[in-house]
Design a protein around this nucleic acid. Structure first.
Lengths: 268, 268
DNA sequence: CATTTTAGTTCCATATACTGGAACTTAGTT
DNA sequence: AACTAAGTTCCAGTATATGGAACTAAAATG
């Protein structure tokens, strides 16, 4: 992180507030902040004035502000794969009857941008916008496996390798070897690596030119199914990933550049 | 706008990019920007590095970035009424069988933070995060009617008074007189003021202490119903608004302050 | 009730880092 | 090949962010 002057610092503060997952007091922020008191204070003031944070005068707490919701709507519409992928996710969810996720990479984390839950009606933001670890989820590994060396190194450096379950791949070496496998067979498995009882298959969404855009997954529970059943869906998942990629290519990345020219660093 | 130094300016740029509703080129932004070329350029660079914007190197276009989606998830969870209101909206939608909206004010605009569409399954971000005009929607007028004088003046100054239909209240005077009526009877009507064929009833969500938090509405179409039918729902809508207010009070605004002490200006 | 402690806010001289005109590079066009 | 437009970099000047310290308000304590 760091860098990018005032803007970068302001974004850090936003992230910090968001990370608390609850309204947070000035003192708490100050503690976990690299900024001195007066500086942090002024940042909070400005961000609050701008609606990027909201301030509760009763409890004297800060929380991410509604202006972010407004901006995110535009972001979701324009720079996520969700609008493009929607019909394909509907199909996949209908066919499998299982939970379907669409994810993209953001700051080395898995950002879920859409979801279909076959059983109950769709939960809104509660799922879109949610983040998860990349190194121990199907979608995360599917995406990482198809990054180029430089990007992958950066993303790996951002992983915490926390051991969520006894099956979690909690080291870089274990992860890299699994990524190798994923790269060769074209899809990723999550064998209760993040949550006990939850297994999933995921395919990367890649442009014909090789650009990695995101991933789709179908999730099941060990109570109702095993990997043999889940792996049977792989051709369909792959097909959906290809369809999304084709649409994305047409809508957003019209002229591919198979050569690796200087690209400005995207949000990674 | 203006003010708030670099942070305010950066937010302006974000809004500007979002306003285009499509990926936008540097030159287009420059045209509609109050910043000189080099300055705008540096802002775009920093925001892109931070993931607040995404940059498509092929088309050389900027769009709101995925980091906003991540941040908005936290905002929606923590500072919107949506999580609190969810069960009540479900009930209301079930009872009425009509479309139900939950909205809050942001920068003088109506920000829809949740929605129930009785017919088809919930659409995700496509609706949450969407904004609309305040002066010609039921929820907008319901909220404005219960602002204090200072806030109301500010919000009114932010209205465009564009005439969407021949029934639109396209002047401050007309609006103020309707707000008077709304204040006295406790609910707002939208009689095809925003969209022909669309009518709605809306109630404000207010704490016992009088703080205006948002609004709930039930929307119908003139094809299937008239105001007599719609107004029959008002007691239920009001009840739901009260329930949400009570919950919000308990969760987020525990000690009310009926006195009007200095409040830091919230996102308005 | 007086006192201490903690939390939050304001001040101001300093220096950092933002500014923007202009020059430059690159890509597309005639 | 010359021209035009779009995008990028440079750099001196200065506006603006910075943060130590002083201040105020509100709890906690004796």
């Amino acid at each position: 992180m760091a860098g990018d002057g005032t803007i970068g610092k302001a974004c850090d503060v936003l992230d910090q507030v968001a990370a608390f997952q609850r309204p947070v007091r000035f003192a708490e922020l100050l503690e976990s902040s690299r900024f001195p008191k007066a500086t942090l204070y002024r940042f909070l003031q400005s961000l609050t004035n701008q609606g990027m944070l909201s301030y509760d005068p009763d409890r004297q707490t800060y929380a991410p502000g509604l202006r972010l919701v407004r901006l995110a709507h535009a972001a979701w519409t324009q720079s996520s794969l969700a609008p493009i992928a929607r019909p394909f996710l509907d199909t996949l969810s209908g066919e499998t009857g299982e939970t379907v996720h669409l994810a993209q990479l953001d700051s080395g984390q898995v950002l879920y941008v859409d979801k279909r839950n076959a059983a109950q009606p769709v939960e809104m933001y509660s799922q879109a916008g949610k983040v998860g670890p990349a190194y121990c989820t199907g979608v995360g590994k599917a995406m990482m496996a198809f990054l180029d060396e430089a990007e992958l190194n950066k993303v790996i450096s951002q992983q915490s390798f926390h051991r969520f379950t006894e099956k979690t791949l909690a080291s870089e070496a274990a992860l890299r070897s699994d990524l190798e496998l994923i790269r060769s067979r074209g899809y990723a498995l999550d064998d209760e690596e993040h949550e006990t009882g939850i297994i999933c298959v995921a395919c990367p969404i890649r442009t014909p030119g090789g650009r990695m855009l995101g991933a789709v997954s179908v999730t099941g529970s060990t109570e109702r199914m095993n990997f043999d059943q889940l792996e049977a869906w792989i051709p369909r998942v792959r097909r959906v990933a290809e369809q999304i990629a084709a649409e994305a290519q047409a809508w957003r990345f019209p002229e591919t550049r198979p050569d690796g020219q200087k690209d400005r660093i995207q949000a990674t």
